[in-house]
Design a protein around this nucleic acid. Structure first.
Lengths: 239, 239
DNA sequence: CCTGCATTTATGTCTATACATTATTGTGCG
DNA sequence: CGCACAATAATGTATAGACATAAATGCAGG
């Protein structure tokens, strides 16, 4: 149990809070007390407590002291990785089959599309994700050419646009919406399941500085794919 | 644009990275340069950069310098709030109808149940969540009596066990699994939908210090509920 | 009893400095 | 040329102190 002292202090209190030894609302020792206890300077204590505060485990109030925070919503970390990477990680063979690649104007009257397009046009990129040659997901994607002009000429057809985008337009804002729906005949045929089969629908909209980048809808057969999210102390991705 | 200087520095670079002005792999000025640029001490610069590093936006390497990180997985924050709170927030009337409340032993041969139970027994708590008297979700829950002995006598029947647990056993680790399934006849009857309807299934297992606490399965009609997750600069996870 | 003001105590920010750590860079020797 | 090793330049950790800020507390006066 060595390493930086501020990290040790942080880990100490994280453990005690997570274990319930320190309950929500409990008061932590003052920084002065912790200086004495650990035999270090105040900045060192403060660094440890700042990290805990940033992680939402404690509240620090001037004059009053430092308290174990009341857990609010259970926010969980949902990893929405690149499908290609995820499939390969499971040791399966990944392939992407492009189905449609068309540059077009946004549908008039479709607010989402016109907003995504901005001043320019849209490129529609539909395709099928295969794991070991079995259909895993249909993907319907729209990309704003105003935001990503490179995509028109880039992209050999068999790299999925999601992977390409991830490498070229990083650090965007995104909203993901997860729902369940019954497979339409068209989707059912592509996924090789019976029409009406329960499917997981992952819909993601992505922005960059308030400018729309892409809007994608992925549909998975319900029995073939689970999304997994985690919450916990070790899940410290914080990003 | 005032406030603490370290926060201003942090926000400056966050904005430049998110805007793409600083691309992945680009090198940031050295701390020395930033000291000069902002006219402050090194600790102040360091605090700003540490926050960015904790958020995963930059990588700091000794001797080499500080670089914009390559985006890894797009981790998103999935808010899994209390159903009761969420429904009331939408201005609807919330109600919980208990269906089953039984103390029993774990099924022999069911590894998940025996592991959850630990040395003790289990309490099974099934119920129905209603929004404006319309069924929104069926809930099948198992709670370990070893981990939560209080639950046996606590809980007036019309407060959902999820809400009760959230208030009594905070700061747990959890894993959430999201999938789609077709409504079984029993589920369909409870949700008042046709059998086979596509439903969203949210399954959550919760631990506390490696001791199982609860295992819950919530099933929503596919067209009545969406899970939403967000990723973005302001989306800090402070609950 | 209540209100308002001063005090006190805690965190918040920042400085200036020192030494540790580490990976790159460069140099010299075989 | 290439390897070993030293110099160097960057971040990492920590100290000791100063002043700022905010809120709980206590005290005085109405």
């Amino acid at each position: 149990m060595s390493g930086p002292l501020h990290e040790r202090i942080r880990a100490d209190f994280e453990a005690r809070i997570l274990a319930g030894e320190l309950a929500p609302g409990d008061r932590l020792p003052t920084e002065q007390a912790l200086m004495a206890q650990y035999g270090c300077a105040r900045m060192t204590v403060s660094k440890a407590l700042s990290a805990l505060a940033a992680a939402g485990l404690i509240d620090r109030r001037k004059r009053a002291g430092t308290f174990v925070a009341r857990p609010r919503v259970h926010s969980m970390i949902l990893d929405v990785p690149d499908l290609a990477a995820q499939i390969r990680e499971r040791g399966q063979h990944y392939a992407y089959v492009p189905l449609e690649r068309r540059i077009r104007d946004p549908e008039t009257g479709n607010a989402a599309e016109t907003q995504l397009a901005g001043a320019g046009r849209l490129i529609q990129l539909d395709g099928l994700h295969l794991a070991d040659n079995i259909p895993l997901a249909v993907e319907y994607r729209l990309v704003s050419l105003a935001a990503v002009p490179d995509i028109a000429d880039a992209g050999s057809d068999d790299t999925p646009p999601g992977t390409w985008l991830l490498r070229h337009i990083p650090w965007t804002e995104a909203e993901t919406r997860i729902s369940a729906l019954a497979a339409s005949p068209a989707v059912a045929r592509l996924l090789q399941v019976a029409p009406g089969t329960a499917c997981l629908c992952v819909e993601r909209r992505t922005w960059r500085r308030a400018e729309g980048v892409t809007h994608v809808r992925q549909i998975f057969p319900g029995d073939a794919y689970d999304l997994v999210a985690r919450f916990g102390p070790s899940g410290g991705q914080e990003g």
